[in-house]
Design a protein around this nucleic acid. Structure first.
Lengths: 344, 344
DNA sequence: CTTCATATCGCAAACGTTTGCGTAAAAATA
DNA sequence: TATTTTTACGCAAACGTTTGCGATATGAAG
């Protein structure tokens, strides 16, 4: 039961029709220099013989793969899922295929994925950096071969690639300012490594909002964690042992915020009366937790579409003028119960 | 600034060393018939010239891609993420690359992905069916070319492909029996289309548990939804208008269960006193909601590993004996607050 | 009836590997 | 020393497309 059947090639079609393989090839791709009639015959015998175009041979000849690679730092957030949907929409419209690689927030896996996609000869790359990625050497090979790379969300600001991001500084500022407006005077920030741009910017926004309101900043109010489930628990424990207790918390990830909130509640803390909480990402969990979580929303689907459009644009133009651009998509604060101290 | 630099090929290496390209090719892949010394020289000049193997040419010649495709019906659940992690672990160990495609629970997208991966000439396929997929013709092309396909979780039982699943009947039975043991006598089942095996089996388990306990079955206690957020709300509304009110609910998706629970609570229903609830999947949200959600846990990572191992096994053996196997991975009921009526 | 433009199509090279087979040299054996 | 085996490597075909260029036939224009 071995696979003995040979694949049918354009030669088989050509032979059957007594024409050349060149004509078949052209006929299959709607080349204008082929008579309607012969093209029709070609298509007919193609399906008759069960022909499938050998993309590998085609890629080899054309020196292109019509494929773009995507590297994401995580998968199970609906932000990322939305981004992927946005990317997919644009790329399929433009006739590109997609290869999605997952780095699991690991620098090593990100490197492996980058070189892997490079060897697979993707025509372009869209990537979001892992949490602990600081070295970008694995993208240098792309630049050397003039393969466009676009970063989204998690970017490296020193890089001269195109980037599509949100205004994390503004978000951090808005979130913090909102807490201040609710009367908070002692606000904790729970976030991830400040080496990653998104957290660095949110941190700055947090500080700027404090400064503007004339509130003191304290190192001990900033908790650098990994934004996992465990992180939520630890953040709660830290808050519980603080003296004086903070009256607000900005936790830059909805899931961690939810876990933290839950842990605080279990220890008798009232949300938002004792501590007001703001998360980040507008994940579904924020609407499940009680009270519902105030958070920052930003449209993943737009980010994906913009990143993909931008990449395809770069692929289209031979001229590598490539004005290095940073695209910023809108974002907004969504106020819900977890932060509404003065609603009465 | 056009990309003028030609790629270096094995010919360039061969020329520089005054040997043949065949020797270079063999040297690069550790062929035993190459002297240590020449191999070393080859590797050295390879990196010196910045050589990268042209996988496309290699694939064309070998008629293999060393790539396996994965089609998932969704992405943003940690079940699927775990499955992908499991698959990735095994496949990378075996030297295969992965292409992940996402069908967004859409039959059309699933078909598109299947033919796309087929044209990309993956060596094998691992897939989970979309909710409304009933026609499997898009996998026929794989069988025709003897490309192994393995289904996981969402499978078609009539198919003669290998499958790796959980015992959904047992899960449904256990969940329902647990509710009965908690004193429930009027149990609602909220689930998705019974054409999909997982929901069909869970439904049967539900019915069998009722029968065994001598409890009556009622069509009006079964709600077929799509297990979205909206579904959770609708399920709650349905339950609220039921007369008499049910005292238990088995909702075959944690997120929907959480939304439903929340909506019920908002309408004055006490969980679990008035209605006990069991979900499915052991998603993170189940530990956030209050009370925490009783659910069914099953290890995605094991499913992924098993599916991948099974596929690679099929790829290894030329002999297509291929005993059609159905592999069942363990699963278990996790009891938490949402169903514990008689904890006092 | 020439001349020329246009419409169709074929030739053959190229893309970069891999690999069956052959061969020369070196080593082992008789 | 003569013969056989082993070692190490080269030749050239094959994988299936795509495409620049040339060739033929057809019709239009003069």
């Amino acid at each position: 039961m071995k696979n003995t059947k040979k694949e049918t090639t354009i030669y088989d079609i050509a032979q059957k029709l007594n024409i050349s393989s060149a004509t078949v090839s052209r006929g299959l791709q709607d080349h204008p220099a082929i008579k309607k009639e012969t093209r029709k015959k070609i298509l007919e015998t193609a399906i008759e013989l069960g022909y499938r175009r050998n993309i590998i041979a085609s890629n080899l000849r054309r020196q292109k793969t019509n494929t773009i690679g995507v590297i994401v730092h995580e998968l199970n957030s609906n932000f990322i899922t939305s981004v992927l949907a946005g990317i997919e929409k644009i790329t399929t419209e433009a006739g590109y295929d997609l290869i999605i690689a997952h780095s699991y927030e690991s620098y090593e896996k990100e490197v492996a994925n980058a070189t892997n996609l490079f060897h697979k000869r993707v025509d372009g790359l869209i990537a979001s950096l892992a949490l602990n990625t600081t070295n970008l050497n694995h993208y240098k090979q792309y630049h050397d071969k003039h393969i466009p790379v676009i970063f989204f969300d998690r970017v490296e600001e020193r890089s001269d690639s195109a980037k599509v991001i949100i205004d994390n500084h503004k978000c951090g500022y808005q979130a913090t300012k909102h807490l201040i407006e609710q009367g908070c005077k002692n606000i904790v920030l729970v976030t991830a490594s400040l080496t990653r741009n998104v957290y660095q910017q949110r941190y700055k926004g947090y500080r700027d909002a404090l400064d503007e309101a004339g509130l003191p900043f304290s190192e001990s109010n900033v908790l650098i964690k990994d934004l996992s489930e465990q992180c939520g628990v630890e953040a709660a424990e830290y808050i519980l042992q603080m003296n004086p207790r903070p009256d607000g918390a900005f936790i830059t990830n909805d899931f961690s915020a939810a876990v933290c909130m839950k842990t605080l509640k279990e220890n008798g803390v009232n949300i938002p009366e004792d501590i007001a909480i703001v998360g980040f990402n507008n994940d579904a969990v924020g609407k499940i937790i009680e009270p519902q979580l105030t958070t920052i929303d930003y449209p993943g689907i737009d980010m994906g579409e913009i990143a993909a459009k931008s990449l395809i644009e770069q692929l289209a133009e031979d001229t590598k003028i490539n004005q290095i651009s940073t695209l910023v998509v809108r974002s907004e604060l969504i106020v819900r119960g977890s932060s509404l101290k003065n609603r009465h």
